[in-house]
Design a protein around this nucleic acid. Structure first.
Lengths: 115, 115
DNA sequence: TTAAATTACTACGACAGACAAAGTAATTGA
DNA sequence: TCAATTACTTTGTCTGTCGTAGTAATTTAA
């Protein structure tokens, strides 16, 4: 599937991305990740929730409770200004990272196939 | 610069790539990484050498000593069949990973700038 | 010529993030 | 009504990175 060691540096970014449009909560976020990645990436629950608390500690998201008279209480998160700035930084970093890694990857249809 | 959390999953791949052309040793590999990445990625010594021993343990590289009558002895590494196969797997994985992460990245020139 | 810089490592320990396992608790659907 | 799903929390383990430090030979510059 996909290596979690690569994604490691981008879980926070992925979550922040999904919070840009609208505040959300764990379960919804995880569904969206699965869906937007075409089932190629399914974030683990513990990874997701620990990311939330890390992001909150850093001030990149804020949590709140939607008033929902009954039902298991959801913890919603919204992105902050700082979170958006961080997200933007990470996007730039990603472009660089992508180019760097690409330098060391031989495409499936390249000359090593003939070696 | 570049986040080591992203590169984490690809250090082994990067090293293997550089060993495909010719066997090499730590110092040379680190110079090549720096150079090929245009100074955007400089691997830490400890990271590099621990990668070597991990790769050797997995059978992806083999070490040997070049006969070099004097001077500090270098440990050379050459890639194995298994190492090449692993490298190729990782290349395919990278293509997928790249596409997945791209789904959650807004390019510098995209609509969020206007938000 | 000698001191500093560079080459070429090894050892140790700390830390962060991912994740497995297990538990809790409410809600919805068959 | 009982299983599946939703919505988490807690705990503890593991892997890879990296800071610090040390060793030792070689090359370069003052």
């Amino acid at each position: 599937m996909i290596s979690s060691d690569v994604i490691r540096g981008y879980n926070d970014t992925i979550i922040l991305y999904l919070l840009i449009e609208t505040p959300s909560y764990g379960y919804e976020i995880s569904k969206k990740i699965k869906q937007l990645s075409n089932d190629r990436y399914v974030i683990k629950e513990t990874t997701l929730y620990s990311a939330f608390s890390r992001l909150e500690k850093k001030g990149y998201v804020e949590s709140f409770y939607q008033d929902k008279s009954h039902g298991k209480r959801r913890t919603y998160y919204r992105i902050t200004e700082a979170g958006l700035a961080y997200y933007q930084e990470k996007c730039q970093e990603w472009e660089i990272t992508k180019n760097v890694v690409n330098q060391f990857i031989k495409g499936v249809d390249e000359e090593w196939k003939q070696l």
